[in-house]
Simulated scan of single mutants.
Amino acid sequence: MKYYRLFILFIVMIASNAVKAQENNAGAIWPVLGKNDTIRVAATNDNGYMIPWIGLNEVVINGQRIWHSAAEQAAFNRLRYNVLKVMPYALYAKRRYEKLESDLATVSDKKDQKRLVKECDNEIKNMFNTEIKELTITQGQILTKLIDRELGRTTYDIVKQTKGGFAAFSYQLIARVVGHNLKNTYNPTEDRDIESIIVNSGYYQ
């Protein structure tokens, strides 16, 4: 009986809201429609006047960049080359670690979790041995930033989560020797040139 009363109350509330909405719109002033006004759109009651509207997708407008010198333009072109060079690796890392997290969420056995982590680690190592090891120091630095951009976590944090604190510390020491920093973070404001390159690269269209 208790649930029956709640159900009746729920129906009454819905009905009263519907009646109220009809009353609010009954005396509203609607715009005069032309012969070509055949598309149904949403409308908002603004002090008695029904204002039709339609949602639009976000439009990003980028101005024409003005270079102060040939050297500045050359530096940007180098940055663009490096960003586009490593962006696929950052996207791959994002997809692979998202899959790892999804897989880990489905198993509770510690051995199975270690196996999944090891498989992911081996895939990353294979890619490193075949491709990433050829990156320059600058490209490696950009890659660590982009991984933070895509995953919301630094490379150091990812290694620490999957391999443990000691492994993360060891990898960081090795990285620092060759000029990298696994703790590099991404800031869209400070790295606005990189952000501009990525936005205009077509990766997210």
Score class of each variant (00 low, 15 high):
91 L>A: 04
63 G>A: 10
44 T>M: 11
49 Y>Q: 14
142 I>S: 02
128 F>W: 12
16 S>F: 15
99 K>A: 14
151 L>E: 05
112 D>G: 00
139 Q>Y: 07
197 I>C: 04
66 I>D: 07
191 D>A: 03
167 A>G: 00
4 Y>Q: 13
11 I>W: 11
16 S>P: 01
129 N>C: 04
52 P>I: 07
65 R>P: 01
54 I>F: 06
196 S>G: 10
198 I>R: 01
97 Y>A: 01
166 F>Y: 06
116 L>T: 03
192 R>H: 13
186 Y>H: 02
112 D>A: 15
40 R>Y: 13
165 G>A: 13
128 F>A: 12
51 I>M: 13
87 M>S: 05
173 L>P: 00
72 E>H: 06
178 V>T: 13
127 M>E: 14
179 G>V: 06
87 M>I: 07
90 A>Q: 02
53 W>G: 10
38 T>M: 15
88 P>I: 06
125 K>N: 09
124 I>P: 01
18 A>Y: 12
168 A>V: 02
193 D>W: 03
54 I>H: 09
35 K>Q: 15
58 E>I: 04
86 V>L: 06
36 N>E: 15
8 I>V: 15
128 F>H: 12
165 G>Y: 03
91 L>C: 04
99 K>L: 15
99 K>M: 14
184 N>F: 05
183 K>E: 05
26 A>R: 15
125 K>S: 08
120 C>D: 11
174 I>E: 07
94 K>D: 06
105 A>Q: 12
34 G>N: 12
53 W>E: 07
139 Q>E: 15
3 Y>C: 00
133 K>Q: 14
64 Q>W: 00
205 Q>I: 02
157 D>T: 05
61 I>F: 04
37 D>M: 12
91 L>D: 03
17 N>C: 10
5 R>C: 11
126 N>L: 13
84 L>M: 12
44 T>L: 12
124 I>N: 04
134 E>G: 12
168 A>R: 01
2 K>A: 10
110 K>W: 11
198 I>E: 01
89 Y>V: 03
47 N>R: 10
4 Y>A: 15
57 N>E: 13
36 N>R: 13
90 A>D: 02
10 F>V: 05
5 R>N: 14
152 G>D: 03
39 I>H: 12
69 S>Q: 08
167 A>V: 06
195 E>L: 07
149 R>G: 01
111 K>W: 03
142 I>T: 03
205 Q>W: 01
191 D>T: 03
163 K>R: 12
84 L>I: 04
41 V>M: 14
84 L>N: 12
120 C>W: 07
70 A>N: 11
116 L>R: 04
182 L>D: 01
34 G>Y: 13
14 I>Q: 11
191 D>N: 11
18 A>K: 07
81 Y>T: 11
67 W>L: 05
103 D>L: 07
132 I>F: 07
37 D>I: 09
22 Q>M: 10
125 K>V: 06
44 T>V: 14
166 F>P: 00
42 A>M: 11
61 I>A: 10
23 E>P: 00
11 I>Y: 11
149 R>K: 14
205 Q>S: 08
125 K>G: 00
143 L>F: 08
116 L>W: 02
180 H>E: 08
80 R>N: 11
180 H>P: 00
115 R>A: 12
95 R>Y: 09
33 L>F: 13
158 I>F: 02
137 I>G: 10
201 S>D: 04
